[in-house]
Amino acid sequence: MRDSFVRVFGLALVLIALVAAPAFAQDPEPSDDEVNRIAKQLYCPVCPNTPLDVCSTQACAQWRATIREQLELGWNEDQIRQYFVEQYGDRVLATPPARGINWLIYVLPPVVIIVGGLLLLRTIRSWIGTNNGRLVQEELLPEKDVYVNQLEDELRRRESG
């Protein structure tokens, strides 16, 4: 059912593009750079993790040719991307579209980092004042580096003097 919709929609796009082509087509022969600009954002299932613009398989070469044809027809970037998604699935996109379970990939890391940050803050807060006044400067000194002390002395002298 969805496939048929996709198919019809794709056909409709092609038709619209065909009709609209003369109006949009400014450059009859798109340059390699224009093709690559779009190809860079796509991933062919035949060579996973390699962007389309640098993939050497025959399948990828055909994809690039398709992009070129579509550019000739005056399609814009979104239309072309949309076409590839309909033909080959979400996996052609460099990042999963943010819907369904895919939300997780965008939501989980920030949530973990924020929770981590809050835990960290709470931990540090809990350390402060657990030992009121016990921690005096002198106590810290032996543990510090000799040079830090010297440096600090230096600085203090310079600042006061």
């Binding site: 496939d3 996709v6 198919r7 299932p45 309909e86 033909q87 080959y88 699935g89 979400d90 996996r91």
Partner: peptide
């Protein structure tokens, strides 16, 4: 026919 969305192959 084409394997739309690579669903059949998957």
């Amino acid at each position: 026919g084409p394997d739309l969305g690579t669903k059949i192959s998957q």
